[in-house]
């Protein structure tokens, strides 16, 4: 039982990390109806830009890259870079594709992901970097001593961050004027334009917010596994979460993340040995497929009804 709980809780916490990446997808889909294939590349770009600025600032001012002022300055500069990226995407890609079919926009984001990956490595180099956020990646001692459960402090902290982020974003979408405008844009570009919603500004805002989410995801995943190209693969973990939670639901990303995280870990441990192991890469997709058959819009997605 203790082992089961360890696997289960570890899976839930990993699921929160997947949800963190899934959030970026949800934000952009909610506001523009685009499944942003470049979200993984944005996570990589954000983390590499942060580390790049940290290194340079530390060198220029003779400080440690882990020093607090360096951290906050690098974070601010990275946020500025993500806003710039959002503006560039809107100005040179989205503006040309207003009211185009979703598949066109999706294809454009595939191209965008290659561009972002190339720009990131071209600008900051291909080296792998370590990232220390000051949160120890070790078991919570009282859980270990009292229940013999190994639960990572780092994963717990990351889960709290993801939870807070979701709460803030849910409130933002529900109760702010910009949030309502974002939802209107998602429903119909032309209708939103006709009632005076500044489509271009809204797109910059939503891509910038997705950029900020990418920074958080990039820092958490970068601190966990290193800042390297493989951060782009975090998107692969987010896709089944999206299918399960629904493409338009912020809380759905969390619930989907929790289900995917826990089930993939349990499947790996209890089913894996019978099929050669290493099944946690495809099991979430099978699970998502089953959900698709039952609820095509996901657990919390908006039901799509067409008049005949």
């Amino acid at each position: 039982m203790q082992f089961f709980l360890e696997v289960f809780i570890g899976g839930l916490l990993a699921g929160m990390l997947y949800a963190l990446v899934a959030l970026g997808f949800v934000l952009i889909f909610k506001a523009s109806g685009v499944l942003n294939f470049a979200q993984g590349a944005m996570v990589f770009f954000a983390a590499l830009t942060f580390v790049g600025f940290s290194d340079r600032l530390a060198r220029w001012f003779g400080a440690s890259p882990d020093a607090s002022p360096v951290f906050w300055a690098a974070l601010a500069l990275t946020a500025a870079a993500m806003v710039l990226l959002a503006w560039v995407v809107e100005r040179f890609m989205l503006r040309k594709l207003v009211n185009q079919p979703a598949i066109t926009l999706f294809m454009a984001t595939i191209g965008l992901s290659y561009l972002i990956e190339g720009v990131a490595q071209g600008t900051w180099g291909a080296a792998v970097h370590g990232l220390d956020l000051g949160i120890a990646d070790e078991p919570v001692m009282w859980l270990l001593e009292r229940y013999n459960l190994m639960i990572s402090k780092f994963d717990l902290s990351a889960a709290v961050v993801a939870g807070v982020l979701v709460a803030v974003l849910a409130l933002f979408f529900q109760y702010t004027k910009v949030g309502r405008a974002l939802r209107a844009v998602a429903d119909d570009h032309q209708a939103a334009l006709s009632v005076g919603i500044p489509l271009q500004r809204i797109w910059v805002i939503v891509w910038a917010v997705a950029g900020f989410v990418a920074i958080v995801a990039g820092l958490v995943w970068g601190a966990r596994n290193g800042v390297q190209f493989a951060l782009t693969y975090t998107a692969l973990k987010a896709l089944p979460v999206l299918i399960l939670g629904g493409l338009t639901s912020v809380p759905g990303a969390i619930v989907g993340g929790l289900i995917i995280g826990a089930s993939e870990k349990l499947a790996e441990v209890y089913l894996g040995p019978y099929v050669g192991g290493g099944i946690d890469s495809w099991f979430p997709y099978v699970l998502a497929l089953v959900f698709l058959l039952i609820r095509p819009e996901g657990l919390f997605g908006e039901k799509h009804i067409d008049r005949v």
Partner: peptide, 16 residues
């Protein structure tokens, strides 16, 4: 022998 699926950026289950 314990397999880790590509790219291997999550290994909690294997190490448990």
């Amino acid at each position: 022998k314990i397999a880790v699926a590509m790219p291997g950026n999550e290994q909690q289950a294997q190490w448990l």
